[in-house]
Design a protein around this nucleic acid. Sequence first.
DNA 1: AAAGCGGATGTTATCGATAACATTTCTGGA
DNA 2: TCCAGAAATGTTATCGATAACATCCGCTTT
Lengths: 336, 336
Amino acid sequence: MDKGSRSPAMTDVARLAGVSHQTVSRVLNDHPNVKEQTRIRVRAAIAELGYRPNRAARALVTGRSQLIGVVARNSTLFGPATMLSEFEQAAADAGFAVSVGSVRELDRSSISAVVDRHLDQRVAGLVVIANTASATEALAEIPGDLPVVFIDGDPDSGRPLVTVDQVAGARAATRHLLDAGHETVWHVSGPTDWFDSAGRIQGWRQTLEEAGAEVPPLLSADWSAAEGYRTGQMLARMPEVTAIFTANDHLALGILRALHERGRRVPHDVSVVGFDDVPEAAYFIPPLTTVRQAFGDVARAALSLLLGQMRDENGTANQIVVPPQLIVRESAPRRV
Amino acid sequence: MDKGSRSPAMTDVARLAGVSHQTVSRVLNDHPNVKEQTRIRVRAAIAELGYRPNRAARALVTGRSQLIGVVARNSTLFGPATMLSEFEQAAADAGFAVSVGSVRELDRSSISAVVDRHLDQRVAGLVVIANTASATEALAEIPGDLPVVFIDGDPDSGRPLVTVDQVAGARAATRHLLDAGHETVWHVSGPTDWFDSAGRIQGWRQTLEEAGAEVPPLLSADWSAAEGYRTGQMLARMPEVTAIFTANDHLALGILRALHERGRRVPHDVSVVGFDDVPEAAYFIPPLTTVRQAFGDVARAALSLLLGQMRDENGTANQIVVPPQLIVRESAPRRV
DNA sequence: AAAGCGGATGTTATCGATAACATTTCTGGA
DNA sequence: TCCAGAAATGTTATCGATAACATCCGCTTT
């Protein structure tokens, strides 16, 4: 429709509808005091011209844009990538655009730079996927009046936060292995400075202690299949290891291969449970028992917390915990 | 530093530096006609106040923001997720923010909606990750004067495009298997409406024909391990199948499991080559020979094309093709 | 019938930057 | 020494929306 030189502005709509631009603004923002008839006329003019409000102008005068900034680690890890994608969908449905700002490392200065970039844009709110404690420190950079929600952050910070219940997930995994008859369960964790890792370690340890089982030494790794493999080579040589719970599915993959190479059969000799339920986990050899995280739910919860903060000024620090779900497959059946 | 009520504006800087706000603007935009001494004074004032330009104001007056929109399928597939992440990094280094707009399906109306959202934001340019032909149609929605770069789009469109050389990758994979002594190579492709799939099919078929090898029926699937498994169950029962080239690593994973279940050894009985080189491919059972795509290079190339278009108006439709690399591992060694 | 009131609408100021034009200050030759 | 022309800087208009205030109108109330 915009055959003209530039796209129509509010005054163009106003002229066509025979009202002032302010009335157009009122219609757009659903102000109560507009006569129904006028509203209809304005709407018609908007449609006819194909008018769309200039967000830059709005942002300039209100000091706030219809933009939500996301701070995430530059990562192709399944969790964060899925989270971002889900969040964008949810935000779009609510009329918000999402600006991503990824960082290579979650250190103070990188985060500070990304937050600054977002502040430049006058984002209406910020979502921080803060897997590590170092990310939480970057709090200081964020102005107090800007709505912020953390995903996977520090549960004790008292800040609005959405997270998967890592402890419960780890408990379910460990419990499952104990119930299947194993004397104890070994755990290969993610990096210990990640909150996710910490929660999973805690759940694993608690469950063992409650069951009176011996707690084996903690093996910590990064999240990669490579480190899983390396750790697996060691575990494969230890006949007393019959049950392994890993902090994610890719670690489990590496371990499965190491066990396979050493001739230790899964689940006959060793049972393995992962975490995440990546789409291909069902096709590992053997199919992986794992803990599924509802990333979509987390993303939607984060958005709703954020929108809540943006509405009421009295942002009662709210925390939402999403329960995980154990998916049982062959690598760790109910009974060996 | 901003203890005051609101963040400092250009006039505040101007007052402190003892110049007009226009001179501040000139310093910010690197205009040539500013005395060195003045420039220094302004820079000092900027630093002292912690001033940062208001992008909304700039966007309003120039009609264009420092924002690049990305249109992508809502996807946690390794390729697209990596691409987005890499692109954001590159854009940030160049001073641009990235707004993501993901769609569930790459159909005309979804894309149109996302493009509209981006236009609302007055994006300075658009990157479309257009894996399928249907995405290309959405061209029509994009104003002619907006810089656009396609990633993985239609090579014949004549539009600026960056893509991995799928044909070359498939040729290398197929060639590798033929050189290892296989009579022919079976191919499990991705969805046939994806450009990636089409290129890989073409490279596979060409190589077989040139070698005088029989071309087996094409097996097409989606990108999932699940379909790889299903297809693999069929292939595993066919003794004449000794070499399989799959369109991505997850398909290969499913096939590996199916072969394993049927007792067909890899690579002794059957060789398998994937595509993508996901980080965990080296830890499949056995480690997967695959074709690595340099997503980082693609992202940076896309950005540079886009910036080029934004500078010169005469956007000579440029196309960049990034070569892939064959990574040889155990699933398909050089000699069986 | 006049006053008062609230609903509906219009007018003007404003946000913070760049664009366009105006003005002042340097230069280097004639 | 003076002047043209360029370099450096300043002034004012502008982008397109919302905020704040002003006005108009119709209705109730006394």
